[in-house]
């Protein structure tokens, strides 16, 4: 799958991976073949009382991505991502988006089997 989304604190490849999935500042969608990038702000989720993770999954599912790279994913978001057939690479906080992407390309990111953050 050549299109991935990375939770990002800003619009460039050199921004940090946002550790949060649902409440991420935004998503950087990268086409690994063409290296086209597109930034989708996730500002609207900040005001949601609940369900930000599910909404984030809906947003990136619309982008046709095969993978999402992030820090932590809660159980509901994980369920929604799995349903959409999107694989999750997690625990990538502390890297830049570019570093996370390089690590993905090298094949050293495994597809998570479950959420790594407790509910709510």
């Amino acid at each position: 799958m050549s299109i991935i989304a990375v939770t990002s604190e800003g619009p460039s490849l050199d921004d940090q991976v946002d550790p949060r999935f649902g409440r991420a500042a935004g998503f950087l969608v990268v086409d690994l073949e063409t290296m086209d990038t597109r930034y989708i702000s996730n500002g609207q989720s900040q005001v949601m009382a609940q369900g930000a993770g599910i909404q984030a999954a809906e947003i990136i599912a619309r982008e046709g991505v095969g993978w999402v790279l992030t820090g932590y994913v809660g159980p509901k978001a994980f369920k929604a991502l799995s349903a959409a057939g999107i694989k999750v690479g997690q625990n990538l906080e502390g890297l830049t988006v570019r570093q996370a992407m390089e690590r993905f390309k090298s094949g050293s990111i495994e597809s998570a089997q479950g959420a790594n953050r407790t509910g709510r």
Binding site: R20, R23, M48, A49, Q50, R120
Partner: peptide, 13 residues
Amino acid sequence: AENSGRLVMVLKQ
């Protein structure tokens, strides 16, 4: 106001 737990999460973060 409604206390949804969301503010609690913001503080913890």
